[in-house]
Design a protein around this nucleic acid. Structure first.
Lengths: 315, 315
DNA sequence: CTGTTAGCGCCTTCAC
DNA sequence: GTGAAGGCGCTAACAG
């Protein structure tokens, strides 16, 4: 691998002039600059990242630490990764992936954290570098999230507008902030409309939702819409309805949440509240880079809007 | 951040002795060694990776470069990531994620490559560091893959054993090696059994498969099993059958391929050929680390066995 | 504008 | 066993 010195010798200048053509080109005479650039190309010169990191005290590495077990991880993380990776790339930062088991390996200039549990905050607290969370947190750290509350309000409102008169919220049986926000969005809108808020909480699996419909089919009345907290649940609900001969979307509407890949497997294309995960990844990366360059004193919250993607499971 | 020097001063020894307690502990007197270890702990000393990389010429970073567009990427990459990340972690290597757009950012000791197209091989060829492919390649590079051919043979054999007499292979409409291998596995086994090989190729979406069933329902006869090249297709096929009142698994069997998350959304739990993605990730990482430590002259192929996960969509 | 000096934190080599 | 010197590749600070 060619070094700064190799380039300097070939171009008959000192190392510093070469270094400057890279980092402060305006300080170098144009002729020299282009000559040096040519030599760099000839030698396929790539600056040594380690040497740079050593002297500049910054690694140009951002770590994404996923605290959840990856095997329970929603597939949509891939889109998040894509958003983060692309934004970092634009600024010549590398993305490093860490898990609960590997968070200490290697150095970085900043962290994006997701899936964190209470017991992990001690570790977060002692980090020297800036931190951005993916998903809301209540400890005062910066974060990027969707407005889960508003998203469910929008879904619910849409269902009402389409003329469904009975609404059932199918939530995820977990005490996570995102789930509570979604539930609250549903309850409050229903209260405002003076309608009863029927809320069910299920494990986040399609067949659990199907079973729920199965067991409660007798009580199901046409003109009902199911506002679901995930696409998996929505697909399970839809399957259950169809198996009992119910008509979707004429008599029963189904609205999902997430909108990544799973809705491609539904027999009807699912109406779903689409989380802009790639945009969220990008936003997280952007926020972190900003913080690295100019530390912000107070908490920054970036809320990205979800958008209803209307398809065949609602009329 | 504490440096080697800080530790040395506090322990009243030279930097070298500290360095040795880390890298060659057997060369340091036990008393000294434990005293120094204590100081390192007190100061929370972490060796500076950049400085180390600079002098040792190795970064302890492995890059996973995903050449596919991430937004078309199967969710199962997450499991692959998990397998790679955990294995690397055990050896104190960091995993860096790169895409088609960011493959030049930062240095590393080796590459794991996936989703590569013909035009990318020029870039691969000029890499200085060892390379392992995820997925078969015909250019002589080391790789880790499942035996797609054998996996489909096994699926097909299983369907026959369960007494389904007519088999239809639902393939993915793409000229990828993995798809061709799967198709071939089906064709050859059927030929051996003197049965007609019905092969259909569809875009890899559930609703496309459902539509296929819809349009061909008249020609479908009981005692048919569908050997599908993906879980998405399998779920779509199953949906189609159920919508037409067909009985799964009594009259129609459905076998998928991949077995990651998608099968959790099916109304019946899907029988599927489960790719051990985490194990494959681990194998890729292991192979790469081996190559880094002792370069191998000839091509190494690691074939990981897929295993049929039997559930409710076959009798 | 360009070159010289010095040092980032660590490890290899060679003395002691 | 342990320490002192030197250098990995790069850049900030100062000189010219």
């Amino acid at each position: 691998m060619a070094t700064l010195n190799d380039v300097a010798q070939r171009a008959n200048v000192s190392k510093m002039t070469v270094s400057r053509t890279i980092n402060h080109p305006e300080q170098v005479r144009p002729e020299l600059r282009s000559a040096i650039s040519q030599v760099m190309r000839d030698l396929n010169y790539q600056p040594n990242a380690a040497a740079r990191a050593l002297v500049s005290r910054c690694t140009r590495v951002i770590k994404l630490t996923i605290f959840e077990d990856m095997d329970t991880t929603e597939p949509y993380y891939m889109m998040l990764l894509a958003g983060i990776a692309n934004e970092l790339n634009r600024h010549q930062y590398a993305l490093q992936l860490a898990t609960r088991n590997s968070y200490e390996v290697g150095e970085c200039d900043g962290y994006i954290l997701t899936g964190i549990r209470d017991e992990d905050y001690a570790w977060v607290k002692q980090l020297q570098q800036p931190v951005v969370f993916f998903g809301r947190n209540l400890k005062g750290y910066d974060y990027v999230d969707t407005d889960n509350y508003q998203a469910i309000r929008d879904s619910t409102m849409y269902a009402l507008h389409r003329g469904y008169t009975r609404l059932i919220f199918i939530g995820i049986a977990a005490d996570k902030p995102f789930e509570l926000d979604r539930e609250q969005g549903f309850r409050e809108l229903m209260a405002e409309k003076h309608l009863p808020a029927e809320v069910v909480r299920l494990a986040n699996h399609g067949h659990v939702a199907t079973k729920y419909i199965d067991e409660h089919w007798a009580t199901m009345t046409p003109n009902t819409a199911f506002i679901c907290a995930s696409d998996r649940l929505a697909i399970g609900i839809e399957d259950g309805i169809l198996l009992h001969g119910g008509r979707v979307p004429e008599d029963f509407g189904v609205i999902g949440f997430d909108g990544m890949l799973l809705n491609q497997v539904a027999s009807k294309r699912l109406t779903t509240m689409k989380q802009p995960l790639e945009a969220m990844g990008q936003a997280a990366a952007k926020l972190l880079l900003t913080k690295i360059n100019q530390p912000q004193p107070e908490q920054t919250k970036v809320i990205v809007k979800s958008k209803l993607s209307i398809a065949e499971s609602t009329r």
